[in-house]
């Protein structure tokens, strides 16, 4: 008998399978956070994971912060999810400062994208959601936003609007998985940099993914 039928048949023939009554879903304290509290919570959770939140007044301020990060870390080459993110013009920032900036449509095939993502100093990406509960970013990966940009380079800079900040995961899951036809091929939560404690319980950042994560949040939406 084919494996599928044999396994399912055996499971279905099991006796005493009773339906389970679930208790009420437990409440989460974060659900009632108001906007200022959400920002504070997001920042404190993110910084506990060594991520850094910058609050930018507007897109010009965001550009200035971005340039500061680039200068401080001596970054030269970038892969970005778009030449402009929330109005922050990364392409022209690059050309003015002699930096290499590439966007997904610059790449002919997956191999060249892959090579660029692994070679870049940093990935600059948008994020679809920020979640206050744990200082988490939520990113929908699609043709505009390849997966590798936020995981292959040693540094990840995310630019996000305060309008996309939500209290808890459930708020975001409802939006992303609402329409079963349009579920993204991958949706990921990112909370701070890559980390490990696998040797003697000593924690350090940047095991396989980014060593640092910066989040620039534009406050005027």
């Amino acid at each position: 008998m084919p494996a599928r039928e044999e396994i399912l048949g055996r499971l279905k023939s099991a006796t005493k399978r009773q339906n389970v009554d679930r208790p009420a879903k437990p409440t989460l304290s974060e659900i009632t956070l108001e906007s200022q509290q959400m920002i504070r919570r997001f920042e404190s959770e993110l910084s506990m994971r060594t991520g850094v939140l910058y609050q930018a007044r507007d897109k010009e301020d965001a550009l200035r912060i971005l340039l500061d990060i680039i200068t401080a870390d001596g970054l030269k080459s970038f892969v970005t999810s778009s030449d402009k993110i929330h109005g922050v013009d990364i392409a022209s920032l690059g050309s003015k400062n002699g930096l290499s900036v590439t966007i997904p449509k610059d790449f002919a095939d997956r191999n060249s994208l892959r090579d660029a993502a692994f070679a870049a100093d940093a990935g600059i990406t948008s994020a679809d959601f920020a979640i206050a509960e744990t200082g988490t970013l939520g990113i929908i990966f699609n043709h505009n936003h390849p997966r590798l940009l936020s995981i292959a380079p040693p540094l990840h800079i995310a630019i996000i609007s305060v309008k996309d900040l939500y209290p808890v995961y459930e708020n975001v899951m409802e939006i992303v998985f609402n329409n079963t036809k349009e579920i993204p091929s991958q949706f990921s939560f990112i909370t701070g940099p890559s980390a490990t404690s696998d040797i003697q319980g000593v924690e350090f950042k940047g095991m396989h993914g980014p060593k640092k994560v910066f989040v620039i949040m534009i406050m005027d939406g």
Binding site: R49, H143, L148, S188, S194
Partner: peptide, 16 residues
């Protein structure tokens, strides 16, 4: 740090 949720393979127009 990461929770990744995959639904099906990549779509045809996606690059990775």
């Amino acid at each position: 740090s990461y929770v990744s949720m995959d639904t099906g393979p990549k779509k045809p127009d996606e690059q990775d």
